[in-house]
């Protein structure tokens, strides 16, 4: 029965399976998985794409072995503050960033290996009432936090050894920023979604808040996942945990919206909903390039092709062990699917 649970169901109209099971890892000492991610890790001159698993009190690094097996390399013990999420840092090696806190993030920490004293270690990058955090290219970390009535939006540049090289404060909007997304292909552009359903645009070089664009209340609590600019328009991929169901588009999990940054006007481009006959709303998910994946309230994982605008794969929930996490791998077309019991299944999406 487990083999059945690990196998994607074929959706109507698709001729071949495009999500293939590769391997499974299970931390026998853990039963409280809160997040999973992948990270490039170099040891003895060999760089490998490793898996990072987090439970509330510890974070483990796993390296791939032959025959689709995994070996735990190290476990960082983190003390009393629970881990909330892993924060991937694109284009970095030997660095894992995590967010810790109770209900909301109170601390951001780096986990790393120090060749100077030949040991694994951890260091605090930021503390405060942190509302959102995102790892950016070139070892940068952006976060929004609140102190009294003031909001701070800050970029921290990290060195390869995990030191904070530089800090830059961005001009904050009045409302709280709940999520960030880099604008692909524009190193100095960043977008964020706010608590009153606006999209903010910053210049990361100057710290300027360039524009704030409201997107209406039809899809409240929208979270940005990806942004890119094309033909003078800014396209933002948003998820919608609280979207209203409609006959035309069902329960949309993701939506692509085009914004004109010059006029602040917007228009919906595409919905990503479940195929007819499949129930479930968006719980959490991730977008990579034109691929979107989400865990649904049914305990299933769905994958969409945002270019085709359709659901391309569905992992059904097990009878007693639902999917709780889904992340795209940092390289290639890998998908990491996690369960609450701490097991992680690696799939190949093609």
């Amino acid at each position: 029965t487990e083999a059945e649970q690990l196998t994607p169901v074929l959706l109507d109209g698709l001729r071949e399976e495009n999500l293939q099971f590769v391997s499974k890892l299970k931390d026998s000492s853990s039963s409280c998985a809160v997040d999973v991610s992948s990270v490039w890790w170099e040891a003895a001159g060999c760089r490998k794409l490793c898996v990072v698993t987090a439970c509330e009190s510890s974070v483990s690094l796993w390296k791939p072995l032959a025959l689709d097996h995994w070996e735990k390399v190290y476990t960082w013990q983190l003390g009393e503050i629970p881990v909330i999420q892993i924060v991937p840092l694109p284009d970095t090696c030997n660095l894992v960033c995590i967010a810790l806190g109770n209900l909301e993030i109170g601390e951001i920490r780096l986990l790393l290996y120090s060749s100077e004293n030949n040991s694994f270690k951890q260091s605090v990058v930021k503390t405060g009432n942190i509302k959102a955090v995102l790892g950016l290219k070139d070892g940068r970390l952006v976060s929004s936090s609140r102190a009294m009535q003031e909001q701070q939006v800050e970029i921290v540049s990290l060195s390869e050894t995990g030191r904070c090289k530089d800090r830059l404060t961005l001009m904050p909007p009045e409302e709280t920023v709940l999520a960030f997304a880099e604008v692909e292909g524009m190193r100095d552009a960043l977008v964020g979604t706010t608590a009153v359903n606006s999209v903010a645009v910053w210049n990361l070089k100057t710290g300027q808040l360039l524009k704030k664009m409201h997107m209406g209340y039809s899809y409240p609590a929208s979270i940005c996942h990806r942004a890119y600019s094309d033909s003078g328009l800014l396209f933002v991929v948003l998820s919608h945990p609280h979207a209203k169901e409609s006959e035309s588009c069902g329960n949309p999990a993701f939506r692509v919206v085009a914004f004109n940054p010059k006029t602040a006007r917007s228009a919906g481009v595409m919905f990503s909903s479940l195929p007819p006959g499949h129930a479930g709303r968006y719980v959490e998910g991730e977008v990579k390039d034109a691929w979107a994946a989400a865990v649904l309230t049914s305990g299933a994982i769905a994958v969409w092709d945002l270019l085709l605008g359709c659901c391309t794969a569905l992992l059904p929930p097990g009878s007693d062990n639902r999917w709780t996490l889904v992340r795209w791998s940092a390289a290639g077309a890998g998908l990491l699917a996690g369960r609450a019991d701490g097991s992680v299944c690696v799939y190949r999406y093609a």
Binding site: N203, L209, S231, G232, L233, N260, K262, T263, R265, A267
Partner: peptide, 23 residues
Amino acid sequence: CSDSDLGPVSLDWFEELSSEAPP
């Protein structure tokens, strides 16, 4: 270049907004 719903667009929107926004 313009779009009837979204208004006139600019390929250089990022540079233009950066020169207009307060520092």
